[in-house]
Design a protein around this nucleic acid. Structure first.
Length: 447
DNA sequence: TCTGGGGTCCTACAGCAA
DNA sequence: TCTGTTGCTGTAGGACCC
């Protein structure tokens, strides 16, 4: 999908179409998740600090991501892909590999092209958004093709042309070559894919290590035999928070770690999993990051056990100077087993002397953060949908000083009017996003 | 001007056992 | 019996991806 989050917001909000839209964290430490193509003209791009984005594009619309909304659209698109083949490997909400041969949907160049073109039409019809398609004989090449196809295009890499196409490209084009590896190669005088091939496999292994060296050399030769894998099992579950202001108070750090442990366990349980290794992550004031982990005797999904382990790990961490991020994760996942749980819980209770604060567990956030903001504090979140008793459906454009500004429009309306209300106006309530495309008979869907 | 969140994979090293 | 090798497990960190 092209500039997915930003495009979804533009489709949802007619007044933003054709305008610079930036989706990301709006706090003082937020970064850009997606910038619309209009915003990219100003130099705004993913992973850029929001402050920098605002300086580059002060007049862009800045919105917080609505993952639930994007997920619903993503499921529609993944559904279309699964009609083509049982082998669909999602990489994220907006990207997936499809093995067309396995699905019998395509057997040669012409049929693949046809399938790709039809898919793009279907995506547009069902979601109202544009997607780009890359067709090639391997995952790596399909990915490169789809990058070249963006926005709103289709690119085919014909068999036999792969090496010639890759040769002059930057090493950064290859999957697995990020800033660090790119620098490493550059210092060795290697800038293009051709130069990787010229350097030879031994030299690459010497520079980058065994796995990376062999892998990259193969990629440079356009050799990529990786299969499309439909079902991937999760290997870890984690949650983390970056705080607007560094936390210095050791007690507060402990409380946050417990909250994160509870959130992590809720996710773990939601997935029907338990895990054996507890990981604590701490990013300090100077951005240095450290992790500490502890492996239990058996898998657990007991919040008390995870909390205690995380707190034990915290004891070994120096937080002088303050922490900007805390995280708790669980790896070594296993399917839920009752015996392990009881054994583990009893063991921990014995060892830790039952010092667990159950109030923390109860009070923790069962409701997603954005909903809490809207419902409990009645703070209106920029970009979120609302309904007004008199004016109908709209979205929050901004709020502050006891007032909230709402633009009243829907995906299929003209750009709407803006009105301002008191934040506690009883006629105003939060609302679900509306479907981007009118629901018509055959393929009903709900957002 | 500062740098999110949720993941995956690889490497290196220490300790232990065969 | 001592020593060196090998392989596994746990731990920590780094790079990368979207």
């Amino acid at each position: 999908m092209d500039a997915f989050y930003a495009s979804a917001e533009q489709a949802s909000k007619p007044s933003l179409r054709g305008k610079a839209v930036v989706v990301g964290g709006l706090g003082p430490r937020g970064v850009v998740a997606t910038a619309s193509y209009e915003a990219r003209v100003f130099g705004v791009h993913s992973a850029m600090p929001m402050g920098q984005a605002r300086r580059l594009a002060p007049n862009a619309a800045y919105l917080v991501p609505r993952f639930g909304f994007y997920k619903a659209i993503s499921e529609q698109v993944m559904g279309l892909l699964r009609e083509l083949s049982p082998l669909v490997e999602p990489l994220s909400l907006d990207e997936a590999f499809v093995d067309l041969e396995a699905g019998g949907a395509a057997w040669d160049d012409a049929s693949a092209r046809l399938v790709g073109a039809r898919l793009r039409g279907d995506i547009r019809a069902v979601t109202g958004l544009t997607g780009s398609v890359g067709l090639a004989a391997s995952k790596m090449l399909a990915k490169i093709a789809s990058e070249q196809a963006k926005p709103d295009g289709l690119v085919v890499i014909e068999p036999g042309t792969e090496r010639a196409l890759l040769g002059p490209l930057s090493v950064r084009t290859l999957p697995g070559v990020g800033p660090a590896t790119g620098d490493h190669l550059r210092r060795a005088g290697i800038h293009t894919v051709d130069e990787i091939v010229e350097a030879g496999e031994d030299e690459l292994v010497r520079l980058l290590g065994k796995a990376h060296g062999h892998g990259l050399y193969a990629m440079a030769l356009a050799r990529d035999e990786r299969a499309v894998v439909a079902e991937r099992e999760a290997k870890s579950v984690s949650v983390e928070d970056t705080y607007d202001v560094d936390i210095h108070d050791r007690v507060r750090v402990g409380l946050e770690v417990q909250r994160l442990a509870d959130r992590c366990v809720r996710r773990l349980r939601g997935a029907g999993l338990s895990g054996r290794t507890i990981v604590l992550k701490v990013r300090r004031y100077d951005f240095s990051t450290l992790t500490r982990s502890e492996t239990l005797r058996g898998p657990t999904d007991d919040p008390a056990v995870v909390r205690e382990a995380a707190l034990r790990l915290l004891e070994g961490v120096d937080s002088t100077g303050g922490v900007r991020l805390l995280g708790v994760g669980v790896t070594g996942l296993a399917d839920f087993t009752q015996e392990d749980l009881f054994a583990q819980a009893a063991e921990a209770a014995g060892a830790a002397g039952e010092g667990v604060d159950h109030a923390v567990e109860q009070a923790a956030d069962d409701v997603p953060a954005e909903e809490r903001d809207v419902l409990v504090e009645r703070r209106w979140v920029a970009g979120h949908d609302v309904r007004h008793a008199q004016y109908g459906h709209g979205w929050v454009q901004g709020s502050g000083l006891g007032r909230v500004t709402v633009r009243f429009e829907t995906p299929d309306s003209e750009p709407g009017r803006v009105r301002t209300f008191l934040v506690d106006d009883p006629a105003l309530e939060s609302a679900d996003p509306l479907p981007l495309v009118e629901v018509t008979g055959a393929r009903p869907h709900r957002l």
